[in-house]
């Protein structure tokens, strides 16, 4: 993937949900972020166009911070920072 260099932000864990549809990206993200410590960053990759709004809503309701949400060629990248518990 060529565009990937653009997204080499710092993160602690990566979760690739490519090909999965609603609600799997959120369910997997929830699981992945549970295993992180407060302040650590999870990067999620998704191909679900609905995920853009869903990740914003997920962050808003759970208190984890959505540092970034980007789209590149129909692939979505999210950076979620785990909240203090």
């Amino acid at each position: 993937m060529d565009g990937l260099e653009k997204y080499m932000e710092e993160f602690d864990e990566e979760l690739d949900t490519s090909g999965l549809n609603c609600p799997m990206p959120i369910l997997k993200a929830k699981k992945a972020i549970s295993s992180l410590s407060a302040g650590q960053i999870l990067r999620v990759i998704s191909t679900d166009p609905g995920s853009l709004k869903d990740f914003q809503a997920f962050a808003k309701q759970t208190g984890h911070e959505l540092l970034e949400a980007r789209e590149d060629n129909s692939i979505f990248f999210y950076l979620l920072k785990k909240r203090d518990s």
């Binding site: 609603c22 369910l27 993200a29 929830k30 997920f58 759970t62």
Partner: peptide, 11 residues
Amino acid sequence: LILASTAAALG
């Protein structure tokens, strides 16, 4: 099941 699992993920 979608709504239940998602709601659980939201706390």
